Computed example of a mutant assay.
Amino acid sequence: MMRLCAVLVLSLLGGVVSVHAAPAPHPHWSVGFHRMSFLDPLDAQPMKAIAFYPSTDAERTTALGAYHVAASEDAKVAIGRFPMLMLSHGNTGTPLALHDLATALARKGFVVVAVLHPGDNYKDHSRLGTVSNLYGRPIQISQAITAALAEPMLSPFVDIDQIGVIGYSAGGETALILAGAKPDFERLRRYCQERPEDRDACTTKGELVVDRDDLQPQADPRIHALMLMAPLSLMFGRHT
């Protein structure tokens, strides 16, 4: 059956692959969204995500905080098995800043789960610049995958063999770790010694606060593809 490739993604798990949307041609889909809540694996406190998905309901725009999002809450899910993309935002950010991307992908036949990273979002900076944030973000995305696959409203419509990650800025760093890349702290230190004027990367002179010594970079074998947007990649070399 012919399938529509909606985005090009680069997999670190064995070459170039693509995550495909639902079979084409398809009817005109609107977008629904569903709020998710589950426990942060770092401290067992609640964390949140919003899943965007193809819907057969009427078009609607919903106010979510400061954003007007072209989606309807808990609208009827379109029949099918759709690829799932996890969305990881940048430092001190919000996934809703990328709501246009999420809804555009949902219209093309993807489920997009936009995660709000605890300790590193627009309201809470408590983990910024720490080891727990670097290694914790990927673990949070893995937990969000598990939660989405257990969500009764979503799980019947997700193709579990087609899961990818969209990472923006620090979210790109998160995606790379999920794909098996290993951060090199010394590489970041050297960069900041050479370019101390880089305020985005070197405000702490390339040093991370070691607030947890029990965390390690964890890849997730369920992830088969990445889409990286302006990734923070200074800690990753060619052979990571």
Rank of each mutant, 00 (worst) to 15 (best):
L8T: 15
R137D: 02
P217E: 13
L64Q: 00
V165W: 02
M227R: 11
V77F: 12
Q193T: 12
E207W: 07
L105A: 05
A144F: 03
P41Q: 06
P221M: 09
L101K: 13
A106G: 13
G93R: 04
D184W: 09
R187D: 06
T62E: 00
L176N: 03
V16L: 09
M36P: 00
G80Y: 15
A78T: 15
P23N: 15
L149K: 04
Q216P: 09
D213V: 11
I166F: 05
G15M: 10
Y53R: 03
N121F: 05
R35D: 06
G206N: 03
A97I: 08
P152W: 00
M2S: 07
L101E: 12
G90R: 00
T56V: 13
A24V: 14
A201Q: 12
G119P: 03
L178F: 07
K108I: 07
F236D: 03
P196N: 04
T103H: 06
A201K: 08
E59Y: 14
A21D: 14
R60E: 06
Y191I: 06
M2A: 08
K205N: 12
D120A: 04
H224C: 10
K76Y: 05
H99L: 01
P118R: 10
G93D: 11
Q218Y: 14
A150M: 10
A71N: 01
A51G: 02
A179N: 07
G180W: 06
Y53C: 03
Y53G: 02
I139N: 11
M229Y: 15
Y191C: 03
A44F: 10
H68L: 02
R35W: 01
A24R: 05
T92D: 12
H224R: 08
G93I: 04
A6G: 12
T174K: 05
L4R: 12
F236M: 08
A106Q: 09
Q45I: 01
G136I: 00
M1P: 07
T146M: 15
L64H: 00
D43A: 01
L228D: 08
D57S: 14
E194L: 11
H20S: 08
